[in-house]
Design a protein around this nucleic acid. Structure first.
Lengths: 336, 336
DNA sequence: ATATACAGCGCAAACGTTTGCACCTAAATT
DNA sequence: AATTTAGGTGCAAACGTTTGCGCTGTATAT
C-alpha cells in the first residue's frame, strides 16, 4: 500500500539495463533479446507498471484526449450524445473531457480556451443557444486541433458536422399531423438564428405548402421550455380559431403544451394533436404518451466521435463531411 | 492560420533571454526586472502563449484532471450529478474526464485502470449495480489517488462518501403515504446489496413500524425500471387485497406503476397513491404529476467534487468524511 | 580601495518517455 | 586471418516546464 507508480527507469535500475532497452522490450521491439523481454515483462507485471500517459503525450506531442463542449449535460438528448461519444472514445483508447457551456457564450469561449491549453487531440462542439460569434472556434482550427460540430452547428466555419435530419423530421411530423386531420398547426421553436430552428421551420413550412395550408405567422412562436409553453399556450388556445395541432421543438415543450391543453378542457388527440421532438425520457411518461420525432442522440454521438477520431488519425483526406443522422416518427397517443 | 502553439523557449529565443527567465517573468517572480516582464508579457499576449499543461503536469507530477466513473450518463440523476461536478471542477481549474461503466463490472474495472494510468488527481465514483468486488477501488487508493464515492457507495473501503439521505427520504415518503390514508404500501427496490436499497428499505420498514402497519414481504419487490414495473404491477394489483400505495425506487419505475394502475382502471390518487424518488425530468410530465423525493443530484455532485478537491489540495486532515445530502418531499398529484 | 549586498539573469537538472545513432561482441563470410 | 554482418544494448536528445543554485555586474557601506 501507499506504493506509487513505477517507471521505466525503475525497471531499468532493478534489472541493470537502460531505460531505452526497457522501453523497447515493452513494445516488443525486434532488437531486444527474448530473455531481456521476458525479464522486463515479468518485472513490469509484478510491480504493475503503467506507462505515464502524460510523459507519453508530451513526448509524442499527442494527447489521447478529446474535449466535448455541450450546452447542458442534464438534457436527455445531450447526455445520450455524450454517452455515444464516450462509447466510441473508450473503444479507441481516448479519454473524453467534458465542458458545459450552460448555454452561455462566455463560458463557451472559456471552454474552448481551456481545451486548447490542454492540447486535446480534438474537439466536439455543440453551440450554445446564444452564440453568434465564432472566433473561438476558429482559434481551435488555427491551433491545428480537429473540430467537429454536432447538432447545433455553425455554417460560418469550415469543418465537419453531424446533424440530425431536422428538415425531414419536421416535415414528416407536420405532414403526419395534416394527414390525420389537423388544419391549423402551431410551431414552437428555439431562437431562429440556430440552424436547427431554421431547418425545422422550413420543414414545417414546406409541409404546409405541400397541402396548400396557409401559413399563419401568429402560430409560429419562439418557445422551447415546458414553463414557457405553459404560459403562452393558453393565449393561443383562447384565440377565435385556435390551432388543432402543435409541433414542438422538443419534448419538454410538448409536455407543457399538453398541460395547457388539458387545463383548457380540450381532449388529446381528439381536439388537438401534439408532436414533440427528441423521444426523451419523459415521452412515455406523458398521458397519453407523446408522439415525437426520434433523433437518435446516441447514434449522433457515435458518429461525431468516429468522424473526429478519423480526422485525428489522419484517415480523412481534407474533405469536410456533413453527416446527417436520420430521424423517424414515433407515433403514440398524442396524435390520431 | 495553421500556427501551432508557441512555447516558453520560443519566447526566450525571440527576446534573447533564457527559458527560465521567461518562466519567472510570466509568474511575476520578484527576481525579474520590470522591463523584462513587460517584454515577455507583451510577446506572450501577442503570440497567444498558453502554457502546455502536459509539460506542467509532468514537471509537477500533478494532473489538474479528475476522473468520474458513473453508471450511465443518460439518467437524469447522474447527469445532474455530473453537471454539479463539472461546475465545481471548472471553477477550480480542473478538467473532468468521464467514464461510464454502463452498469457493468468489467467496464468499471477498466475505467479505474484507465484513470490510474492517466494519473488523474482524484477519482469520483458511483458503483455499478452489479459490483460486489471492490479491489479495483483499493488499487486507486493504493496508487495514492484520492477517491470519493457518491450515491452508490461501498462500505468495504475506507474513503470519503457523499450520499443522499436515503433513509430519511424513504421514511418521510412512506410516512406521508400512511398519513394520507394508505394502509398497504408496496416498495419497489433496486437490488438489495446496494446501500441505497438497504437504506430506503429500512426507511420504509421503520415508517410502517412507527404506525404499526404489518410488513408484508410480498409487497417488497426488486424492480427499478419502467418496463419491469409495467410487467409486475398488474399481478400485484390483481391480488385479493391489493396495495393502495406504492413507493418506487425511482421516477421511471413510478411512471411504470402509474401506467399499470391506470390500465387497471384505478384512479390516482383516489384508489392508489404513488411516490417516486429523484424528481427527474419526467416527474412533471406525468399526469397527475408525480409526487417524489427530491434528491438534489446537482448538489450531490458539487459536494462530492468539493470534498475531492479538498483532499487533492491536502485541506483535509486524514479524516474520512461522510457527507449526507438532504432530501425533501415534493408533493404533487399522485398522492392525496 | 576593499568588502558587502543585492538585483537580474542563466545553467542544468528533473518529470517519464521514445528513438536515431553509435557502440560492442560474437558469429559468419571472404 | 581479415573483414563483414547482425544481434543486442546504451547514449543522449527531445517534448515544455520549473527551480535551486551560481554567476555577473553595479551600488552601497566600511
Amino acid at each position: 500500500m501507499g506504493k506509487t507508480q513505477i517507471t521505466i527507469k525503475d525497471i531499468g535500475r532493478a534489472l541493470n539495463i537502460s531505460p531505452s532497452t526497457v522501453s523497447r522490450a515493452l513494445k516488443n521491439h525486434p532488437d531486444i533479446s527474448q530473455v531481456t523481454k521476458d525479464a522486463v515483462n515479468k518485472y513490469a507485471k509484478e510491480f504493475n507498471y503503467k506507462p505515464n500517459t502524460l510523459a507519453l503525450s508530451l513526448r509524442m506531442s499527442k494527447n489521447n484526449t478529446i474535449g466535448v463542449i455541450v450546452p447542458e449535460i442534464i438534457h436527455y438528448f445531450f447526455s445520450s450524445i455524450l454517452s455515444g461519444i464516450e462509447q466510441i472514445a473508450n473503444e479507441e483508447g481516448f479519454n473524453v473531457i467534458i465542458c458545459q457551456s450552460n448555454e452561455n457564450y462566455e463560458r463557451e469561449v472559456k471552454n474552448t480556451q481551456a481545451l486548447i491549453a490542454t492540447r486535446v487531440s480534438g474537439v466536439l462542439a455543440c453551440l450554445s443557444k446564444h452564440t453568434i460569434n465564432y472566433d473561438h472556434f476558429q482559434d481551435i482550427i488555427d491551433s491545428d486541433i480537429p473540430l467537429v460540430f454536432f447538432d447545433r452547428i455553425c455554417i460560418g466555419i469550415n469543418t465537419d458536422r453531424v446533424v440530425v435530419d431536422d428538415y425531414s423530421g419536421a416535415f414528416a411530423a407536420v405532414e403526419y399531423l395534416i394527414q390525420t386531420g389537423c388544419k391549423r398547426i402551431a410551431f414552437y421553436s428555439s431562437p431562429l438564428h440556430l440552424e436547427i430552428s431554421k431547418n425545422r421551420k422550413n420543414g414545417y413550412l414546406d409541409a404546409l405548402r405541400k397541402y396548400s395550408i396557409p401559413v399563419d405567422e401568429s402560430l409560429i412562436r419562439v418557445c422551447d421550455t415546458r414553463e414557457e409553453a405553459i404560459i403562452i399556450t393558453p393565449q393561443i388556445l383562447d384565440s377565435p380559431n385556435r390551432p388543432d395541432g402543435f409541433f414542438a421543438i422538443n419534448d419538454h415543450c410538448a409536455s407543457g403544451i399538453m398541460y395547457a391543453v388539458k387545463l383548457a378542457k380540450l381532449r388529446i388527440p381528439e381536439d388537438v394533436s401534439i408532436f414533440g421532438f427528441s423521444d426523451g425520457e419523459l415521452a412515455k411518461a406523458c398521458d397519453p404518451m407523446l408522439s415525437t420525432v426520434e433523433q437518435h442522440g446516441y447514434e449522433m454521438g457515435k458518429n461525431a466521435a468516429k468522424l473526429l477520431l478519423d480526422k485525428i488519425n489522419g484517415k480523412t483526406h481534407g474533405q469536410y463531411t456533413n453527416k446527417i443522422v436520420r430521424t423517424n416518427l414515433i407515433i403514440r397517443g398524442t396524435t390520431k
